[in-house]
Simulated assay, not measured.
Amino acid sequence: MSGSVVEHASKQYRKRTNQVEGWLERVQLELQEVQNILQKGEQEIQKKCLGGWCPRNCYSSCKLVDEIPVDKTVGMDSILNEVWRCLDGHQVRIIGMYGLGGVGKTTLLKKLNNKFIDKRHGFDVVIWVTVSKEVNLVGIQEVIRHKLQIPDETWEKKTDEHSRATEICRSLSGKRFVLLLDDLWERIDLRNMGVPDLSYHQNGSKIVFTTRSEDVCHSMDAAVKKFEVKEFAETVAKECKGLPLALITIGRAMSNRRTPEEWRYAINTLQSHPSEFADMESKDHMIRKDELIDLWIVEGILHNYGLNDTRDAGEFIIRSLKHACLLEKVGDSDDFVKMHDVLRDMAM
């Protein structure tokens, strides 16, 4: 059999019947329809992600954390690392940092916020909210919903704080989040904001806040961290007696010092001639608590209390002032207190 005959016979054998041709055409149409469905589905997924409705992490459409400008600082690394370890662990869910105004609590919280930018972690979103003394719940909810990218059309249907809190809670419940609350003056009900109860929402979400009052930390069931500006060196902090004014003064004087020799000289100067550092003279003075309460009674400050309750009221006020960092304990004794000279000057 010649080659041409074989080729002709082969072509005849491979020739498709009309039935096969029809079947193949239907298959191609079905495949095209499937492809169109898949493409539409992907478009819908992208829309939902952009609207903040996607249950998975949409890093391409939702920015994890907004960087906050912060000045260069000295002496916060140890505290920052300690708080970060708490965020990385499972034992602590709420962290409260308290201390006098101006010691650097907000700065530390900003540095913590920015640390999420270049550190490996498993959080889906980091939310910063400034609370302040006059709590504006509507404004707080607005900040949170913008970060969660809840659509305007959905948000506008929520006409009261409760329904908006429910919407925020629904969105947060699908995420492992960090909520940073700056400047709490009193206990705030997280449920009114829309924040899930972390006792039940056990996916590793965390809340960190700053306050001037230790009582606020306890009322929020937080792990408490008292904030001190201290990592120039343990010796320097000891010589400054932990006083913010002294630490700030030394920090300003030593801000451009980098060598161990310079720091050793500063420590020697503090130990031998502390007055050589400007404004380092001490003006605070300890006073016995009983004497302080007696003075309050004479001044009529405790006149609203009965005779038997007056001293108890005085003790309660002193404890409250100590928790708010307005009075300081003297050594290991509970019999004496003192006021920082900065606060005394402000009062005068």
Rank of each mutant, 00 (worst) to 15 (best):
L87V: 10
S205H: 06
H340A: 10
A9C: 14
G96T: 05
L302E: 05
I127W: 14
V129S: 07
A223N: 03
D160N: 07
L172I: 06
G75Y: 00
K158M: 15
M286N: 13
V138G: 01
L112H: 11
E234C: 09
H90E: 15
D77R: 14
L292W: 15
R16K: 03
G51T: 01
G96P: 01
S275K: 04
Q43M: 09
S173M: 03
L172Q: 02
L245M: 07
V103I: 13
E167T: 15
E328W: 14
D309Y: 05
V65S: 05
L80P: 00
E231Q: 09
K289H: 09
Y98K: 00
V70K: 00
P260H: 13
W23L: 15
D341R: 00
C240Q: 04
W84L: 02
D183T: 01
G101D: 03
R258E: 02
K110E: 01
K147P: 03
E7S: 12
I297D: 13
D183I: 04
V229D: 03
F123V: 00
E161P: 01
M97S: 01
N308K: 12
H323G: 09
D77Y: 05
D66M: 05
A246T: 09
N308C: 11
L321K: 05
N81A: 14
I287L: 07
R93S: 05
K40N: 15
M286A: 09
L137I: 10
V70F: 14
V65L: 06
F177S: 06
S173F: 06
R56H: 12
T211N: 08
M193K: 00
I94S: 02
E239H: 04
R257M: 11
R85A: 02
I207V: 12
Q39I: 11
D334E: 14
S282R: 10
R93N: 13
N18C: 05
K11P: 02
D341F: 03
Y13M: 14
I79F: 01
I140A: 04
L270G: 08
A223G: 08
H162N: 07
A233H: 13
H146E: 10
H323V: 02
Q271C: 15
L38K: 08
C49S: 10
H340S: 12
K322E: 04
T210L: 02
N36T: 13
S255Q: 13
G22I: 07
Q19H: 04
H8M: 04
R85C: 04
